[in-house]
Simulated assay, not measured.
Amino acid sequence: MGDGAANTMLLMDGSVDRPALRIVGNMPEFDHLRLSGIRIERPDRGMNGLGNGAGLLIENVRQFELDDLRTFRNGYGVHLIGCLVGRIDNLLSYYDRQGIRLEQGKYQSTPNVIAIDNCSILASLRIGVEIVAGTSVSMRGTTIESTGVETPDQRSVGLFVGQSGLAGGVAIDASALYFEDNHGSDIVVDHPDRLLTYGFTRCVFNRFAKSALAPAIVFGSQNGPGAARAFLDLSGSAFLGHGGDYRAVPTRPAVRFDFPRGYAGVRLFDESALYQFDEERPEAEPFRIR
């Protein structure tokens, strides 16, 4: 426990590919980890902002709590591998290449039951939050802003969700999220597997100048089986444009679903909320399914 993230700093001066702080667990012998009140910073990220070294890397730990952390100029702000049942609260990630990354470990098939609450992911070079695998991830009261600021030619996403690799798929429950000024899509769901549930309720998508290739939300299914089902809940969410920043037309939708292999069971709940992004052109087509 540090003396607050504003007062206690770990300065990592060395390889940009090594973590500043690495904690390796051995379940069930090592669990119940709490880390709080620390700032982790690097002088730079290496040439062109590259380097994969995490500010905080945690592996194979069950029942963890991370609170009041700041990460600055790391490859990943917080990188969790094979961690089960835990939460990340009050994280400020600034100018990390990626803010948060969740992925499966050597002994655990997937991160499981992870909560991300009241965090700010600002100015990530590529991705704000990346969920490679997770059976149940909740996100509440979190801001993801200005991702992809230095590498617009690469995939720059506010929230990226990859294939879960599990028979039961992945479930994400998100509420009161705020997306602003992301250079790529705010949310990308890529290669989903089997039954998926994505709930983005009471979220705000603000100030986005997107294109047909980078709508606010992209829901893809390039590699999944034909029997896969996906549910996207956008109840109460608002798409708010500023002036001429965004105009939804059929060639530039706010939400896009790509189903080249015939996904079934996609459902929008409360789709009228999708019209809130542009009061000047309420007749514009808000989303496209092809």
Rank of each mutant, 00 (worst) to 15 (best):
G2T: 07
G4R: 07
A5I: 04
M12L: 13
V16F: 07
D17Q: 07
A20C: 10
I23L: 15
G25H: 05
N26F: 13
G37H: 08
I38L: 15
I38W: 01
G46D: 05
N52D: 11
A54Q: 02
L57Y: 15
N60Y: 14
R62I: 08
F64L: 06
L66Q: 06
D68Y: 03
D68C: 01
L69S: 03
T71S: 12
F72D: 03
G75W: 06
G77C: 00
G77A: 00
V78N: 04
G82I: 11
C83A: 04
V85C: 12
G86N: 06
R87S: 15
I88K: 03
D89P: 01
L91A: 06
D96M: 01
R97W: 00
G99M: 04
R101T: 11
L102M: 10
Q104L: 14
Q108T: 14
T110C: 12
T110D: 11
P111W: 03
I114F: 04
A115N: 10
I116Q: 05
N118V: 09
I121F: 00
S124C: 13
G134M: 04
S136P: 00
M139E: 04
R140I: 02
E150T: 11
E150L: 13
T151M: 12
V157S: 02
V157K: 02
V161D: 00
L166C: 05
A167P: 14
A167K: 14
A167Y: 07
F179V: 08
N182G: 12
D186I: 08
I187P: 03
P192R: 07
C203D: 02
V204N: 07
F208W: 10
F208Q: 09
F208C: 08
K210M: 08
K210C: 13
A214P: 00
A214W: 13
P215N: 01
S221N: 12
S221R: 11
N223G: 09
P225F: 08
R229E: 07
L232S: 02
L232R: 04
L232I: 10
S237R: 01
S237I: 01
G244E: 10
R247Y: 11
A248T: 07
P253N: 02
P253D: 00
G262E: 06
Y263D: 14
F269H: 10
D270A: 15
Q276I: 05
Q276L: 14
Q276W: 06
E280H: 10
P282M: 06
P286Q: 03
F287H: 08
R288V: 15
